[in-house]
Amino acid sequence: MTIQSGFIMPVAYPTVPAYSQSKRSKQSSDRVARSDAEATIANEQEIRAGLSQHLTRLWRYAVVLSHQRDVADDLVQATCVRALERANQFAHGTRLDRWLFSILHSIWLNEVRSRRVRMGQGFVDADETLVFDGQRDTETHVFANQVLRQVQALPEAQRTVVFLAYVEELSYREVADLLDIPIGTVMSRLAAARAKLAASAGPGRQEGSAQ
């Protein structure tokens, strides 16, 4: 099964991060903030509607990042407040859900995670918060739970790209833009995550190297 993404991008060598940088700066220049007051009000309503539509997806991403439901609640709330405050920075014609995801991610990275680390609270194990209670133990569900746990057990940097690329089905380029990292970094994180997942998915196989 091949996981298809939105479009086929040109060759992207992991060793040439400059490629993604140039693409990104071109994109970001499109995101010119509008200052017109009427547009701001229209935007605020549009953002509010978009938030309402994507709340559960944002929450799911927040759970993937934080491993904790209550932190996810707070993270989504902070994302809503921030998005509404910055409604006039949203560029029309771009994907609103991607913009919201990137706001949530930057709040997580810059505010929530660092604060929690400083407070020394640490993080709970993936199993503690993500067990699908009340779900029937059919074979499918057991397998789904197993996949979920394996992804959640990956280091944060890896599970984030796996989630965005394979669950949210973003292209590599979109993942790179959302996380504000070079596309080569997306590729190397996915490769490392895939090698780990493959090793546990096929217990009979030995992890070798092609190089």
């Binding site: 989630f163 669950v167 895939r194 090698a195 493959a198 998915a201 096929g202």
Partner: peptide, 14 residues
């Protein structure tokens, strides 16, 4: 072949 074993039903899982 080894890496393809990580083609898992991620969407269904999440």
């Amino acid at each position: 072949h080894f890496l393809a074993a990580s083609n898992l039903p991620f969407k269904n899982a999440f």
